[in-house]
Design a protein around this nucleic acid. Structure first.
Length: 462
DNA sequence: GTAGGGTTAG
């Protein structure tokens, strides 16, 4: 493909778009995109909107944001066409996924500069980005500004309700819901699900059940499996597993399809209250209803086996997953690793951690934190220091408690060499907060003949 | 190509 990218000098805009579409590598796609416009003196290539769209989307998916912004900048200068709004929604969601809320906001505000009118769709995209980044305060600003020229819709309200529930402001969430009809907005299935979910996670079961009834009676919307899953989880949260099973019966009566998520929720509930003898019956019923366990179901089963300290069973389930066509995911491994660490089997946990990539699964932040914590707790300090460096390199932050433990133990052991290695890792970590640093150094100096001057000096010169 | 559920870790 690299050969191809270099060789394309004279193609039609249409041909460029089709070449871009089939190019999987985002860097090569960008190279291809640029190759048709070799010099600023030459007659500018008449890129099609589709070519812009394709290359922006590919760069965004690959998180190559600086490059994506460059192409967007070029697109802004193209006066031949106005840019359709969904492209911006897409860009905003890329930034949301990367938790770059300020970039999402900037994109939203830049839309008019692309000869495009902002509608409620891009508003909702940016609100959702702010929700994902937990930047609740900024949501009001954006919304107030928007209200001056257009009206929010049901989706806007759903995002607001979700944000308010997420910050524990259930009353305010309810107020948004109650105001919807006043503003001429009809609540939909998502509205009910979001609010019921919020009520359930805050243990406000009575109101949640009332809302489910109103949903059918007043609004004529049938609750689906998602609503039931929320209610079941809420029931279990307040300790009423039987109520969760009652809801399952209700679903059967009302002929609402029970899916794998429902069974996963119930099996998890049984694990929690140690009624594990009932799990096999539930799995049997699942099979009879023609409902196949998915990855999450298996993960729940794996965590159940781990809870019973039956690691062999957990491994068997891992194999069974592959046989039944669902791939173990990072959670499957994290659960087993967590149990291995808890049992002090650090070598085995490390082996599994290192084996994950070969098994087609990349360890995530959680995997690293689990192993790091295990190593610190079992005093495998050298290994912990090594892993810490790897984490810092990947931009992962360990939990505070694990770090304190590690530094504390190194101080107790008066292991100056390793302590410096650890502090050096911190120095490399851009994500580390400044105050964290000071605390770490003072902890390192305590019970230790290091003077802080000496330490800092050492770190600066090394 | 706007919004929503179930598992793990803290």
């Amino acid at each position: 493909m690299a050969m191809l990218a270099r060789s394309v000098k004279r193609v039609s805009p249409f041909r460029l778009a089709s070449l871009l579409r089939s190019e999987k590598d985002p860097s090569l796609a960008l190279q291809l995109f640029r190759s048709v416009n070799p010099s600023p003196e030459a007659k500018p290539f008449r890129y099609s909107l589709l070519s812009y769209d394709l290359v922006i989307t590919k760069l965004g998916r690959a998180r190559m944001f600086d490059e994506m912004e460059q192409v967007l900048g070029q697109l802004r200068g193209e006066t031949r066409f106005s840019v359709p709004e969904p492209l911006f929604c897409q860009v905003i969601s890329f930034y949301a996924r990367a938790r770059l809320f300020d970039r999402a906001l900037r994109t939203y505000r830049s839309i008019p500069g692309f000869r495009c009118r902002r509608s409620v769709k891009s508003l909702n995209s940016v609100l959702h980005a702010l929700l994902k980044c937990r930047e609740y305060d900024r949501m009001d600003e954006v919304l107030d500004d928007f209200r001056n020229h257009a009206n929010p819709d049901a989706c806007t309200c759903n995002i607001l309700i979700k944000a308010l529930c997420g910050s524990g402001r259930l009353e305010d969430a309810r107020a948004v819901f109650d105001e919807m009809p006043v503003r001429g907005i009809r609540p939909d299935g998502v509205t009910f699900l979001t609010l019921i979910n919020g009520l359930c996670s805050n243990s406000m079961l009575e109101e949640a059940f009332k809302l489910k009834d109103d949903m059918v009676r007043v609004h004529g919307i049938r609750p689906d499996a998602r609503v039931y899953a929320s209610l079941m989880k809420g029931s279990c949260k307040v300790g009423d597993v039987n109520m969760a099973f009652g809801l399952k019966e209700e679903m059967l009566r009302e002929r609402i399809e029970l899916d794998a998520a429902i069974y996963s929720t119930l099996i998890h509930a049984l694990n929690e209250v140690e009624r594990t003898a009932e799990v096999s019956g539930l799995l049997e019923e699942m099979r009879e209803n023609g409902c196949k366990p998915d990855t999450v179901t298996y993960n729940v089963l794996i965590s159940g086996s781990c809870k019973k300290k039956d690691i062999d069973e957990a491994y068997r389930l891992l194999d069974a997953m592959a046989e039944n066509g669902c791939k173990p995911d990072v959670t499957s491994y994290n659960v087993i690793m967590g149990e291995l660490c808890k049992e002090g089997k650090l070598d085995e946990a490390t082996d599994l951690f290192e084996d994950m990539p070969r098994r087609g699964c990349t360890p995530d932040v959680v995997s690293h934190r689990i192993l790091f914590r295990g190593l610190c707790e079992k005093m495998q300090l050298k290994e912990a220091a090594f892993l810490l460096d790897e984490m810092v390199f990947k931009g992962y932050t360990p939990h505070d408690a694990s770090i304190y433990k590690l530094v504390d133990l190194l101080c107790q052991e008066e292991n100056h060499e390793l302590l410096l290695t650890v502090l050096n890792s911190f120095r490399k970590g851009k994500a580390m907060k400044a105050d964290y640093w000071t605390r770490m150094i003072s902890l390192a100096c305590k019970n230790n003949e290091f003077s802080s001057i000496e330490l800092v000096d050492h770190l600066i010169t090394s």
